[in-house]
């Protein structure tokens, strides 16, 4: 449904996005993860034609976004919730978009209600909170009921209820056959939503796969009645260990391997979990050596 090939953007001789390629399938939510300045927004702007790629191309159902005569019906896009004139009302803004997209203006009030802005449509955008602006941006993205949603940090500024609503909305969109690409710099924002993660660091895709695989660290945290003995047997098996502040053992091996070693040595384990890496740790591991 959405494909990118070798997208590259160079500003003043410095590549900010380099050779980014991916394919997104219908029925999936893909998180585009990366720290601030990694190249997420530039990539999304290149996908939607707002920024010309220095090299590479992207397609929505076989055509570049800008080649569709009315692309709002292909992809609903939220890139910057603050990119709205503060002196206009939310309803007036959406009506302008509806006219441009060839939608009946009656759809505006429907979509305002859908995003929870039913009572705020007549307020000036300048008086909206950040969360309300995000909702207005989402309303614009959803206005035409497009098959693809591209959302840049959609959860920014939302309260917990809003975050839950967005998660449900995105999952519902994917389950209904839609394609979702959402960017974030916070892993926890997407871990309950995304089927797949595209991780970008220093402008390059550094990881691509299911979230579970990415956060898997091949490290474990084990607890038992005798952690000193547990640490000893693990060390004897060649596994690096470290005590944790709360009295557990941090082992450089998968839970399966730790469990096997402990079982063979007759050491009891009450609890063993895989250590999940934080986004920062993953970036350090995957992108740390790729500074350009």
């Amino acid at each position: 449904m959405l494909s990118a090939r070798e997208l590259t953007k160079v500003y003043n001789g410095r590549p900010v996005v380099y050779n980014v390629s991916f394919d997104l399938q219908p029925g999936t939510v893909t998180a585009f993860l990366g720290p601030n300045g990694a190249g997420k927004s530039t990539t999304l702007r290149m996908l939607t034609g707002l920024t010309r790629p220095t090299h590479g191309q992207s397609w929505f159902a076989g055509k570049p976004y800008t080649a569709w005569p009315n692309p709002a019906h292909v992809a609903g896009v939220l890139l910057d919730a603050s990119a709205t004139h503060p002196g206009r009302t939310g309803r007036a803004h959406l009506r302008n978009i509806a006219i441009l997209a060839g939608m009946p203006t009656s759809r505006v009030d429907e979509v305002l209600y859908e995003v929870g802005l039913g009572d705020a449509g007549g307020k000036k955008v300048g008086k909206y909170s950040l969360g309300m602006r995000q909702r207005l941006g989402l309303a614009q993205a959803l206005l035409t009921r497009p098959p693809v949603l591209i959302l840049d940090e959609p959860i920014n500024g939302l309260d917990p209820e809003g975050i839950r609503s967005i998660r449900n909305l995105l999952r519902g969109h994917a389950v209904a056959g839609g394609t979702v690409l959402l960017s974030s710099h916070v892993l926890s924002e997407v871990d309950q939503t995304a089927d797949r993660v595209l991780m970008i660091g220093n402008g390059q895709i550094v990881a691509d796969g299911p979230l579970r695989e990415l956060v898997s660290s091949q490290q474990s945290i084990a607890r038992g009645p005798d952690t000193a003995r547990l640490a000893q047997v693990l060390q004897e098996a060649g596994i690096g260990v470290q005590p944790t502040p709360d009295g557990a053992v941090f082992a450089n091996a998968t839970p399966e391997r730790v469990s096997d070693v402990a079982f063979k040595a007759g050491v009891q384990i009450h609890n063993i979990t895989e250590h999940e890496q934080s986004l920062e740790e993953i970036f350090f591991r995957l992108a740390g050596g790729q500074q350009r």
Binding site: E114, G172, V175, A176, G177
Partner: peptide, 18 residues
């Protein structure tokens, strides 16, 4: 394809596929 109506306002727990 038609996305679910009122998705945010009604917040379905599982995002049932229409």
């Amino acid at each position: 394809y038609q996305p679910p109506h009122g998705a945010m306002a009604q917040a379905p727990a599982t995002g049932a596929p229409p």
